[in-house]
Design a protein around this nucleic acid. Sequence first.
DNA 1: TTGTATGCGTTATCAG
DNA 2: CTGATAACGCATACAA
Lengths: 329, 329
Amino acid sequence: MSKQKNAPTMADVAREAGVALGTVSRVINGKPVGKAFRNKVEQAIRRLGYQYNNSGRTLRTGKTNTIAFIVPNTINPYFAHLVHHINIALEKRDCKMLLCFTEYDTDREAEFIQMARQKLVDGIIALTYNPDLTIPDNIPFVTIDRFFSASVPCVASDNFGGGAMAARRLKALGCTSAAFLRIGSTLTNEPSKRREGFISACTEMGLPYEVMALEDGQPFSEFEHFLRSHITDHRLAFDGLFIGTDYLAWEIIKLLRGMNIRVPEDVQVIGFDGIRMFGDQEPVVSTIVQPVQEIAEACVSTVLSDRLSAVPSLTCLAVRYLYGGTTKE
Amino acid sequence: MSKQKNAPTMADVAREAGVALGTVSRVINGKPVGKAFRNKVEQAIRRLGYQYNNSGRTLRTGKTNTIAFIVPNTINPYFAHLVHHINIALEKRDCKMLLCFTEYDTDREAEFIQMARQKLVDGIIALTYNPDLTIPDNIPFVTIDRFFSASVPCVASDNFGGGAMAARRLKALGCTSAAFLRIGSTLTNEPSKRREGFISACTEMGLPYEVMALEDGQPFSEFEHFLRSHITDHRLAFDGLFIGTDYLAWEIIKLLRGMNIRVPEDVQVIGFDGIRMFGDQEPVVSTIVQPVQEIAEACVSTVLSDRLSAVPSLTCLAVRYLYGGTTKE
DNA sequence: TTGTATGCGTTATCAG
DNA sequence: CTGATAACGCATACAA
């Protein structure tokens, strides 16, 4: 298992085939080469088991064919799906993915961005929560769910529309009193619009609602207090809940069950994201599904676009409602 | 957003600082340099905003400081955790991770291995199901859960011990009739030993058991048939189940609940892996926990070891039982 | 079409 | 300790 010292190089192949170095290069890169020459080279390549050396090529061309994807982690199934689809979209274009986990650490995010300057990657796709991230303006950079400025393309789903969709669905399913629950960074990003959309639709339809928003540091138990304080005679004041993410919805439902409040009989719950627990199973809750695959596609085609100036600064993709057992349909 | 054409190079820094190229290199790599020279160089670096170019360095040194991790996907939480911890272990050693998803496609696995030959990565950690994978003997290669030969180091948890542990735990919790359920590839790999360990302990303790093993292609509904055929008078013939993975356990439990069989009152269930749904929450089932972090540590330190010959060909790590609500403790 | 020669940015090996 | 210079492996402009 000692490291191979002398991997064959193009010069070796050229010598073996009795042709010039440039010819070998042309064969490898699919440039026009005479039939006879091509054959000689291809045989030599096979004989020697030649493989091109990536660093040499990269140094020469300045292209790495690698994109960094910066994401908090892969534990959250929504992120996991994103990683999955971005990788597929990149692979389709013969690109590698360098995955960078921030674990919500803002220092880390900044470090990862250096990698682009080190010419380790050709571009960056980032899902970041750093409030004051400085984005280099000389490398392709695409963000997910976070609008920085018109010069930094952002891809997101229609969070506002999704919030409104949830409100309308709850109303249609017979709810008469709703609440919106969320936890997250204080940062104003695209997902913040879920709340605005929800409120907007509730107001429009005359559906009474309350909002309970926790900031990232605050203890989860606040939700329990909130819910308990809205229970009288073992009955919850709300018969419809819209919750910022499926993950939180999942936790809230556990809480409700612990309080002997039935879902969906007593209260209907709609989450956001469209998480599937182990892949293509049914969703864990009734939910507003983000079009993960299209988000990934959009990110990749944007970051790889050679004329970034011609790219939309905000790509907004449609969401849809999906039944997942926690509503009456 | 146009691509930066002229990133400053070492030569630029050298000129700016009025020193030789080599001196700049020595400063950057922390080699001994006179105080005055070092200062001049560091200032020049700051003035120019210099960043080293990775491809140049890699071409010269032959080291990429990158390891490929080959894994089916990141949708399965167990894999997601593995990715997570391997990344941490690599980062600790200033290494990047190139993540490669096989989606259980054996062709893909072979392609990824080429990347090492292209000097894109220094080594490979792989969790593979390809029955006849040819492993290059000239690059550092570590497998998880799969023993190839003494020359290919394998890291796994104590699957046999875990199976036995599950059997003993069920017995201790009062079970009098057990069953082992699994689904997976026909491949004989380390996880296959879960079954052997279970059987061995059952036999030793005189605990009656049955085994129901499905192969990868077979429909999931076979489990339902199996369970139904073991129900008489609304009572299941088993009061203890050991299931190959938490994922399957999760599915089986849904099945049982659909049959009005209560878990853990009527039947206790123990899974394998130690999956946490969204990270550090409680486990989804009572389970035998794999030491993911230690597995990751072992993989990384092995693949990065410069004397691979001195590395154990099989690293076997201890598992533990964890209560997760589906047993009577 | 094919051969030759140069340079991408870095590190390492020499002299000084 | 520092400066000059030669590779590393490849793609490409230019010459033949």
